[in-house]
């Protein structure tokens, strides 16, 4: 399976925060034959371990979140049959009008988020995104049908194909963090192929988009002394600060932040240089806003690093990433995991 094909499967799997089981299934399939042990925990994190008999303290924990932003149903409108919704994660509501969605009710229902016709917009609201309580999902069915098919708490996901932009880029919802998930899956494959002997725990976390509870508990359970979170971050684009160095295609971003362990950041940079893997450095002044923040303080604490895939249009249906960056991130992660001695890390 090519990385693009893997991304198509991952992005299509329903896994809005707190309801990630379908994505866990797709990931487990992709890692069948690579991982030796699959486990889940009470928060539904999926852990795929290579070399589970090797000591945990020498092992490496990789984290990528498998949950996706979306919406959660709060009610069915009796007059119209439309669904009332609340945000489940940080969807960019400027993009919500006329957005294609899939409602994950008793069965999956196609739907669309309403787009207010211009004549209904008050002058001061005309150029502003509507708040979520003024939105609704139209599934084309009357209340009598909808009330039996959808209940409050059901999730709503963005529903678009993954488009190819040029030779190497892909565009669609949920590359955050399917790009990271794909990088970890690919890294595990390389590690296995190269005969890595240490314990490698690949944890696909839940609930990152609503607070990182999955990473918090999964990292507590993991005995690995070191952890690397794999997520997406802002790539150069109009509106993004000029200080952002990463562009689509410039390779993974290696995180440097007070909360991240300098040895890990330095080792990642050295390995990238040594293996001729393109990279940029992403500097953050405090925490990272990723699963890394939760991993580093879990249990007695872990040496933690962060790798990010450059992404445009984050939290919109137009998220755009470069497959070359995902593959380069996988190579870098595998190289890090393959370092024989702790001192080499």
């Amino acid at each position: 399976m090519t990385t693009k094909e893997l991304l198509v499967r991952l992005t299509a799997a329903p896994s809005v925060s707190g309801a990630e089981n379908a994505a866990a299934g797709v990931i487990a399939d992709a890692l069948a034959g690579t991982a030796d042990l699959f486990e889940t925990d009470p928060l539904c994190n999926l852990k795929a371990t290579l070399n589970p008999d090797a000591p945990a303290e020498d092992g490496l924990l990789l984290l990528a979140h498998m949950d996706k932003i979306g919406f959660i149903v709060t009610g069915v409108d009796e007059a119209t049959g439309f669904l009332r919704i609340e945000k489940c994660g940080g969807s960019d509501l400027r993009c919500a009008p006329a957005m294609r969605v899939k409602v994950l009710g008793k069965r999956a229902l196609p739907g669309v988020i309403i787009s207010t016709p211009p004549h209904l917009a008050t002058p001061d609201a005309a150029n502003k995104a509507l708040p979520v309580d003024k939105l609704g999902v139209d599934c084309g069915l009357p209340y009598e049908d909808m009330k039996d098919l959808v209940v409050p708490g059901d999730r709503v996901m963005e529903d678009y194909p993954l488009y190819e932009l040029g030779e190497t880029k892909v565009c669609g919802p949920y590359l955050d963090d399917c790009a990271g998930v794909a990088a970890v899956i690919r890294a595990a494959g390389i590690y296995k192929e190269k005969g890595g002997t240490r314990r490698l725990e690949c944890v696909f976390t839940t609930r990152e988009e609503v607070g990182g509870q999955g990473a918090e508990t999964a990292s507590f359970t993991s005995g690995c002394g070191a952890a690397i979170a794999v997520d997406v971050s802002f790539a150069k684009a109009p509106g993004v600060p000029e200080t952002v160095e990463a562009a689509l295609g410039s390779g993974p971003m290696i995180g440097c932040a007070p909360v991240l362990h300098k040895d890990i950041s330095d080792r990642l940079k050295a390995l990238a240089e040594e293996k001729n893997i393109p990279y940029t450095v992403e500097v953050m002044g405090r925490s990272t806003g990723t699963d890394a923040d939760d991993a580093l303080t879990a249990g007695g604490g872990k040496k933690t690093g962060l790798i990010s895939i450059p992404l445009r249009n984050m939290h919109t249906p137009d998220e755009t990433a470069d497959v070359r960056d995902i593959e380069a991130a996988a190579s870098l992660l595998a190289a890090f995991a393959l370092c024989e001695k702790e001192d080499d890390r």
């Binding site: 940080g90 960019d92 400027r94 009008p97 150029n127 932009l165 684009a237 993004v240 939290h315």
Partner: peptide
């Protein structure tokens, strides 16, 4: 066309080239 109908959406040119309507990340 209302801008909101374009934001975060994709368009297709006659030769099949897909274009994504970019938007400054809401986080920024």
């Amino acid at each position: 066309i209302q801008p909101s109908a374009l934001l975060g959406k994709t368009v297709k040119f006659e030769n099949g080239t897909v274009g994504a309507v970019g938007v400054k990340p809401v986080h920024l």
